[in-house]
């Protein structure tokens, strides 16, 4: 993901790794796979969903973090292609999601409960609190939970 390979890019990448997603603050924009490329003069990002209201907030947060770290001259470019996919959520990001109480995206028909790990769970609603999540319920511990949709 870091192109150019020099120290400057690595420093920019470290700044980005500290920028939280506004809806799921345990994840950074890097964990989420939003950051597609880091160059010495340009950071390339991609939106998750076409209509995700967090898109503008994310760009503003990245701008603020870059400016604060002295990278005022680094441009932010938004690209649509290739389209964002949950496959780009890092292994680290998946572990953080699970610890936060959100079942990470998998192709499996059933999501294990992030609280008690039971597989006796069911989908309540295909859409949840944000475009990227579905609402599930655990029949063992009776707690509702969010599941990150495979996308």
């Amino acid at each position: 993901m870091v192109s150019g390979g020099d120290d400057r890019c690595a420093r920019i990448a470290r700044v980005l790794a500290e920028v939280p997603d506004p809806e799921i603050p345990v994840l950074s924009v890097v964990d989420l796979g939003i950051v597609r490329d880091v160059g010495p003069a340009r950071v390339t990002i991609t939106p998750t969903y076409s209509g995700c209201p967090a898109t503008h907030a994310i760009e503003a947060a990245i701008r603020q973090a870059l400016d604060a770290a002295g990278f005022e001259g680094v441009a932010i470019e938004t690209v649509l292609s290739p389209p964002w996919t949950t496959d780009w959520i890092s292994a680290d990001g998946r572990a953080k999601l699970s610890a936060y109480g959100i079942a990470p995206p998998t192709m499996a028909a059933c999501a294990p409960c992030p609280r008690c790990n039971s597989s006796d769970t069911e989908e309540v609603s295909r859409f949840g609190s944000t475009p990227c999540k579905a609402l599930w319920r655990c029949r063992a511990c009776l707690e509702p939970f969010d599941r990150f949709k495979c996308h």
Binding site: S50, G51, C52, P53, V124, S125, G128, P131, L135
Partner: peptide
């Protein structure tokens, strides 16, 4: 409530596509 959330999310996706 579940249908409300679903339809609001569908609408949001569509408005996002329209914007693009």
């Amino acid at each position: 409530l579940e249908v409300d959330l679903s339809l609001a999310n569908v609408a949001l996706d569509l408005i996002g596509q329209a914007t693009l």
